[in-house]
Simulated scan of single mutants.
Amino acid sequence: MDFAKRLYQRFSSLVHELAKFGSIGAIAFLIDFGLLNLLNVVIGIGPLTSKVVATTISTTFAYAGNRFWTFRHREQSGLRREYFLFFLLNGIALLFGMLTIGFTTYTLNLHDALSFNIANIVGVGLGTLFRYWSYKKWVFMEATDPIPVELPEGGVKPGR
Rank of each mutant, 00 (worst) to 15 (best):
K5C: 05
K5A: 09
R6T: 15
L7I: 15
Y8F: 10
Q9Y: 13
F11V: 14
S12K: 11
L14C: 10
L14N: 13
V15C: 07
H16P: 07
E17P: 00
A19M: 14
F21S: 01
A26L: 13
I27V: 11
I27H: 03
I27D: 01
F29Y: 06
D32C: 01
F33G: 04
G34Y: 05
L36Q: 04
L38K: 08
L38P: 03
I43K: 07
I43S: 07
G46R: 10
G46K: 08
L48R: 09
S50V: 08
S50P: 11
K51W: 11
K51H: 15
A54P: 00
A54N: 07
A54R: 03
T55Y: 08
I57Y: 00
S58D: 05
S58L: 03
T60D: 08
T60H: 12
A62H: 02
A64V: 14
A64F: 14
N66K: 04
T70M: 02
T70A: 03
F71G: 03
F71A: 03
R72G: 00
R72C: 05
E75W: 07
Q76T: 12
L79Y: 14
R80S: 10
R81D: 13
E82N: 06
F84R: 10
L85A: 13
N90V: 05
I92W: 09
L94A: 05
I101W: 00
G102F: 09
T104C: 13
T104G: 06
Y106M: 09
D112A: 07
D112F: 03
A113W: 10
F116T: 11
N117V: 01
N120S: 15
N120V: 12
I121C: 04
I121S: 00
I121H: 04
G123W: 05
T128A: 04
Y132P: 04
W133M: 12
W133A: 12
S134G: 04
Y135L: 08
W138D: 05
V139E: 00
V139I: 02
V139D: 02
M141E: 13
E142I: 14
E142D: 11
T144G: 10
T144I: 15
D145L: 12
D145H: 14
I147K: 05
E150H: 15
E150T: 12
L151I: 07
L151W: 08
E153G: 02
G154R: 02
